[in-house]
Design a protein around this nucleic acid. Sequence first.
DNA 1: CGATGACTTGACTGCTGTCAACGTGCGTGG
DNA 2: CCACGCACGTTGACAGCAGTCAAGTCATCG
Lengths: 238, 238
Amino acid sequence: MPPSTPNLTHVACSNCCLNEVCTPLNIANIGITVKDNFVERRLPVAKDTVLILGANEEHYLYAITSGSFKLIADNDNQSHRACLGFRFAGELLGESALSGNKSPYTAIALEDAHVCRLSTHTASTVNTQMPEFSNRIIRLLSNQLHDSLKTHALYQGSASAEEKVIAFLTEVSLKYRRAGQNHLVFTLPMSRSDIADYLGLTKETLSRSLTRLSEEQKIYCSAKHIELLDSRLTNYSL
Amino acid sequence: MPPSTPNLTHVACSNCCLNEVCTPLNIANIGITVKDNFVERRLPVAKDTVLILGANEEHYLYAITSGSFKLIADNDNQSHRACLGFRFAGELLGESALSGNKSPYTAIALEDAHVCRLSTHTASTVNTQMPEFSNRIIRLLSNQLHDSLKTHALYQGSASAEEKVIAFLTEVSLKYRRAGQNHLVFTLPMSRSDIADYLGLTKETLSRSLTRLSEEQKIYCSAKHIELLDSRLTNYSL
DNA sequence: CGATGACTTGACTGCTGTCAACGTGCGTGG
DNA sequence: CCACGCACGTTGACAGCAGTCAAGTCATCG
């Protein structure tokens, strides 16, 4: 495995999905800020590290603060078509941990990364003491469900290969925008095979679609470097 | 619109996703059962009724107790390929309400149905008073996320039209099983067009796939009546 | 019984998958 | 420094499956 090109730029806490959960609870009758007790912050994760979420009775909610991950299905019956999605800085991993479920996916770091994590045990303990913390967790999960549904809707209308690729670029662009980074010019951290698996295409068809989109001046694409030139690709909001 | 064939069989509360939330909280320091105050129970919904979830600042979490719904995307840019999924008795509607988001889908009753509902205002009020209630809501949302991811994984490996149809029948079968109903012999409440939209196929291709599956003795299919004959279709678990 | 809509079947086109060859970037080793 | 191997990505040729258009069948309801 080649050495990683480290992405040392952490996403700002204000752009992180766990921000509300991380933000100190200034509760009058407790009078302390509890942030650092709850969330373990900025743990390094080396490229290609496999995060099996929810094994060994240890359940954590992770927030990615730098780097990116790909999600693969645990059902090892089929090695192909196993890529379930991607997560970038500011996004959550292990979102089904709070029901005690093992995550239905395994996350693999696409580059050197950092994560913050909250143990579900800690979360449930704090919940019983601070209703406001519960409400923050509930908003987090509800927002996550909303995102999940919107993303589904984004892809639902895509019939042709080219439409699927456009939907993918739109999704990635949105993730960069949320992270407070450039959402018109960015790097794709994953391989063409991963993208193709995710979209239900072959890597050849994906490659041809990218070539055609380049020819149509809708994007500029050179290897993993992408520039979006067509406003249709960036108008979507989740 | 033709009259509905009413499905008067309610799902048992024990098989409902809201069961935990509905179950009385026997809290010592309150000493009351509060079920009926929180959840409005078994409201009738006529066939073809459109449920716009989260309009007018009214946000509710719904549980279907009888009947079924189809989910369509709100983005009316494309009338085709708009079907996002289906929900059966025992399942949730409006799951992103608790973050104050308008639901990204609209639900339409496929047959006369009944729903229970919990207003988000009630939920947040109770949350601040009863930590155990919060934990139940959190488990509900986390389970919902888990389901959503598992369903995604179920379809991810499906390359051909026939595999998509098999995944669909597997999903529907699972929903009936969860509802405590026969999951090997059942009725499809939605049209072929709805299924085709959902799967990203044309209704012609869907029809041909069903015919082929029948010829291969994997299913018996007569109009909306389905029987699963191949164990591969029923081994999946979410 | 006829009208309407839903579903199925058929013929044909076209897009996507398959298989293969080639090009490119990068690290290793001569 | 360059040659080489390897992995990744692109391009080409061809076949097969799914989409399109059209016709026919079936179910339901007035």
